[in-house]
């Protein structure tokens, strides 16, 4: 397998290494200090850094601006882009804006509903959905065309990814849905946070049965729990999240001051187990407002040092 784009993430995967990505959320203001610090903390332990796009529909600095910031720091950003806030003109324009700065990774998402955030009275756009955005990226990159049919001068070169939630309902179409994303052009997949490893492995079996793991690079998503309270919240309040009772129990049975440490330990154990699952090609570690823990997790999981490609 050889990389088709200048993406470092694609090169790491093409060389057969487990890839490691993490994510940073842009600030709710214009001060770049904090996001630069977050990126500095994790940069040597990951291959690329996802920059979220107004996650949970809370208004923040735009993903593209922060991706450009990372690029100027010599880092490898993954531009997250949701279809909630932009129509096809804005989406294509921002893809070109990213390509202008040689941003080579994009993650195509539909985005949380705006009712979760600070703009619940706003419109949502959804001119395209996430699969159609993937198709758009591939059209722009591979054929050098706009959706309108015109040629793009210097087409973008992007490694195009999508999210997959192995746990959302209805479960029986979760593999079929991945197949659709692969058909739409997903070159890599970052999954929803995995806590139910048995169910994830069942999904992966379905994925392998259809050979999808050979057509796209599946990166397992992980978020370390900070406390039993967080586990309960994720279980009960976050849509599409599958947190088994034993995960909550293990944290709840741990003294409060040790719960964070236990959460990290559980995350590392999960990575170690998932490394053995055929078709898992990397890990996407989403340590929400806990970036400082990423290097320790990566090291303890035996994923450090990161390969030079």
């Amino acid at each position: 397998m050889t990389a088709k784009t200048p993406s470092k993430l694609e090169k790491v995967l093409a060389a057969g290494h487990f890839a490691v990505t993490s994510e940073c959320g842009p600030p709710r203001g214009s001060d770049p200090t904090e996001i630069v610090e977050k990126a500095e903390i994790i940069k040597d332990h990951v291959d690329a850094i996802n920059i979220t796009d107004n996650q949970t529909s809370v208004c923040r600095t735009c993903s593209l601006a922060v991706c450009i910031r990372l690029k100027t720091m010599g880092l490898e950003p993954v531009l997250q882009m949701v279809t909630r806030d932009r129509n096809r003109i804005a989406l294509q324009s921002d893809i070109l804006g990213a390509a202008h700065w040689d941003i080579n990774n994009i993650l195509c998402l539909s985005g949380d509903h705006q009712s979760f955030g600070d703009s619940s009275k706003g419109q949502n756009v959804h001119d395209l959905d996430s699969m159609q955005l993937l198709q758009t990226v591939r059209l722009m990159c591979d054929e050098g065309k706009f959706l309108g049919g015109d040629d793009i001068k210097r087409p973008p070169q992007m490694f195009a990814g999508a999210a997959a939630n192995p746990f959302a309902d209805p479960f029986e179409i979760r593999v079929a849905r991945l197949a659709k994303k692969v058909a739409a052009g997903a070159q890599f997949i970052q999954t929803q946070c995995i806590y139910n490893l048995d169910k994830f492995e069942e999904w992966m079996k379905g994925v392998r049965d259809r050979g999808l793991h050979e057509k796209t690079a599946i990166m397992a998503g992980l978020t370390p729990m900070k406390s039993a309270g967080m586990a309960r919240y994720m279980k009960n309040r976050v849509p599409g999240m599958d947190v088994p009772d034993e995960v909550v129990k293990r944290l709840a049975d741990t003294p409060k001051e040790k719960q964070a440490e236990e959460g990290i330990k559980m995350c590392i154990e999960s990575i170690q187990r998932l490394k053995e699952v055929e078709g898992v090609r990397g890990f996407h570690i989403m340590a929400i407002e806990w970036e400082e823990k990423v290097p320790g997790i990566v090291e303890a999981a035996g994923l450090y040092p990161r390969p030079e490609v």
Partner: peptide
């Protein structure tokens, strides 16, 4: 709620919308 043409999105739980 997102007029997703190739759904469901990741927020579907127990047959209900996020």
């Amino acid at each position: 709620a997102k007029r997703v043409m190739n759904g469901p999105c990741g927020g579907s739980t127990n047959g209900k919308c996020e």
